[in-house]
Nucleic acid binder design. Structure first.
Lengths: 156, 156
DNA sequence: TTAAATGCAAATTATTTGCAGAAGC
DNA sequence: GCTTCTGCAAATAATTTGCATTTAA
């Protein structure tokens, strides 16, 4: 986990009057030491790898705090579990494309969509708070060659 | 419910080899006789108003059929229940803005967003299947006047 | 007649919560 | 010391499912 990220998180805890505990430290460490998305359950497993006493309840109680701090993004990609995305710190405006062939999630960032959505919102008489663009799509490469190389997101 | 919609639905049932039952008729009638969004539970109540024998299980078993037919759109707007939107027949590309002040859902349609999302998807090497844009926003009128007149969507 | 559809009730499953004990400040 | 935090286990709630019965074709 980067020092800058750690600083921002503990600053947030301090400001909010939240206490520092071994369990929270472990969850925070687990939450921001990868760049991939994870479920609450996966975060529990990772956290327990650092501090075995972490319980499921504490993970579920800590996640909303991190989301509220703006450091972690809760993603609802249409599955039955929420996903958590630690990459919003560095790319606060990215969107998601979900491959319907292999479930891969591709993150992309597009200034034009962002601007366009702001305009539309304003035109309707609102001020944007949260915007989410979710594109489900099929892989062209798979269609062509029959195999789907896990290409990396091209726009981040 | 419009005759054209009814025709398309029963054509779909026929093509799929699905049987026509009193319960399905009632659910279909209830599903397409309003333009507002509804939950499975609300649809159950409406369906029972037409045919009292409709059970919750049958509603939950019928909804995926209607969604699969393309006549009904399943919306995941971040609540704990799915919402169903019968307006996709007439406006297949509309998006949703959710007012964080009053929970009102405003439907809007924007050709530019549509085009832009198609381009991005192609550029990433995919072909778009489902696209969902969800904007959560606060009401400017509420901020100004302290009251939030339920303005009608301006773009449909 | 026979395969599909239904109602009921129980199962499933992610998430939340009450509570008593533990721990930070 | 006082309040917050925690683990545990039970509660919650939308949706799904097994099964015996009914019904459309």
């Amino acid at each position: 986990m980067e020092a800058a990220v750690r600083d921002r998180i503990y600053e947030f805890l301090l400001e909010s009057g939240l206490r520092r505990t071994a369990q929270r430290d472990a969850i925070i460490e687990a939450a921001f030491s990868h760049t991939d998305h994870y479920t609450a359950e996966e975060l529990l497993v990772r956290s327990r790898g650092i501090e075995p006493s972490v319980s499921r309840a504490t993970v579920y109680r800590t996640l909303p705090l991190l989301v509220e701090s703006g450091l972690l993004k809760e993603l609802d990609l249409g599955k039955d579990q929420m996903l958590y995305d630690p990459n919003y710190i560095e790319h606060p405006r990215h969107s998601h494309l979900i491959c319907i062939d292999c479930n891969r999630i591709v993150e992309f960032e597009d200034r034009n969509i962002d601007t366009l959505e702001n305009c539309i919102t304003k035109r309707l008489g609102f001020s944007p708070a949260t915007k989410q663009t979710r594109i489900e799509a099929s892989c062209d490469e798979l269609k062509r060659s029959g195999a789907c190389a896990h290409r990396v997101a091209q726009d981040l």
